[in-house]
Nucleic acid binder design. Structure first.
Length: 258
DNA sequence: ATGGTGGCATGGCCA
C-alpha cells in the first residue's frame, strides 16, 4: 500500500496537478494539506472519476486537510484533535486497509516568540497527548503531512540560517517533534537515507527550488508495528517542476505485508 | 536587502 502526503497549497489551483500526479504515481492513500476549500466545494466527483474516495475537513482560504483512498473504504473518520478547540482545520484521521492514517497540517508558527508560535507549541502538545491514545488504539499507524518542522540539520539547506532560534528549526519545535517520535514513530525517510540535502519544500521566492534552497518538513512517520513493512520511501520532485507548482512536493512510503 | 512570490474573503493576511 503506497501512502503519500502532499501540501497542495490550494486544491482549487492544484486539482489538475493532483489528478496528473495520481495517474503518474498510483498511490493507494493520499493525505492532502492546505486544500483551502470548504467541504461543500471539495472536488470529490472529479477524484471519484479518477478512482479515489475522499474525506475532508476544510475551510475557506486557509488550512484544510483531506484523505483520499483507492480501492479501499475510508473508515472511522476523525476531524480535529479531540478535546482541543480549534477553528483551524488541520487534522483528519481515518482507517484505510487496517492502517490508521493521521493527516496533519501542523501550525507554521510565523516567528519564534510570536502568538502563532505559542499556538504551534500548544497545538503540538495537544497532538502528542491525543496520538499517545490513538497509537494505543491503533498500533498500525501512519502520521503524515506538513509538519512545518525540519527534524535536524540534514533537513535544511543552510543550518546557519535555519538554526535553533529560527522558525521551523527552533529547539522547542524540534523537541516537540521528538516527543511525537518518542511515542514509537519513525521518520520513514531516515529508515532508508542518512544523507542531507533532500527537501520537500522550497520557498517561491528567490528561485529557491532552482537553487535547491529547501527544507524537509513534509514527513511520513510510521509506527513501530509498521516499521518492518516499510519497503520504500520517496520524495517525488517532479510536480514541483510543473508550471504553477505548489511550493511543496509529494512524499510517500510503500508498505508491504510482512 | 526587512525584500522576495504565491494564494485568496482583492485587502491585508498567511505561508
Amino acid at each position: 500500500m503506497k501512502i503519500a502526503s502532499w501540501n497542495v497549497n490550494s486544491l482549487n489551483v492544484r486539482l489538475p496537478h493532483l489528478l496528473q500526479w495520481l495517474e503518474r504515481a498510483q498511490p493507494d492513500v493520499v493525505a492532502l494539506q492546505e486544500t483551502k476549500l470548504e467541504d461543500a466545494r471539495f472536488p470529490d466527483t472529479a477524484l471519484a472519476e479518477a478512482g479515489y474516495r475522499s474525506v475532508c475537513s476544510g475551510q475557506k482560504t486557509y488550512n484544510g486537510v483531506a484523505i483520499l483512498a483507492r480501492g479501499r473504504a475510508i473508515e472511522d473518520v476523525q476531524a480535529g484533535i479531540p478535546g482541543f478547540a480549534d477553528e483551524q482545520k488541520r487534522v483528519i484521521a481515518a482507517t484505510v486497509g487496517g492502517v490508521r492514517i493521521v493527516d496533519l497540517y501542523v501550525v507554521n508558527g510565523q516567528a519564534v516568540g510570536s502568538e502563532k508560535y505559542d499556538y504551534k507549541l500548544r497545538w503540538l502538545a495537544a497532538l502528542r497527548d491525543w496520538l499517545a491514545e490513538e497509537i494505543a488504539r491503533h498500533p498500525r499507524m501512519v502520521v503524515l503531512g506538513d509538519f512545518n518542522i525540519a527534524p535536524d540539520d540534514r533537513d535544511v539547506h543552510d543550518p546557519a540560517l535555519w538554526n535553533d532560534e529560527s522558525i521551523l528549526t527552533s529547539t522547542a519545535e524540534r523537541a516537540a517533534l521528538r516527543r511525537l517520535l518518542d511515542l514509537g514513530l519513525h521518520d520513514s525517510y531516515r529508515l532508508f537515507h542518512d544523507e542531507g540535502g533532500a527537501f520537500s519544500w522550497w520557498d517561491y521566492r528567490q528561485a529557491a527550488f532552482r537553487r535547491n534552497l529547501g527544507l524537509r518538513i513534509d514527513l511520513v512517520l510510521v509506527s513501530e508495528a509498521l516499521r518492518a513493512s516499510c519497503k520504500a520511501v520517496a520524495i517525488d520532485h517532479e510536480p514541483r517542476i510543473w508550471e504553477r507548482a505548489s511550493d511543496h512536493t509529494p512524499v510517500w512510503v510503500e508498505l508491504v505485508p510482512v
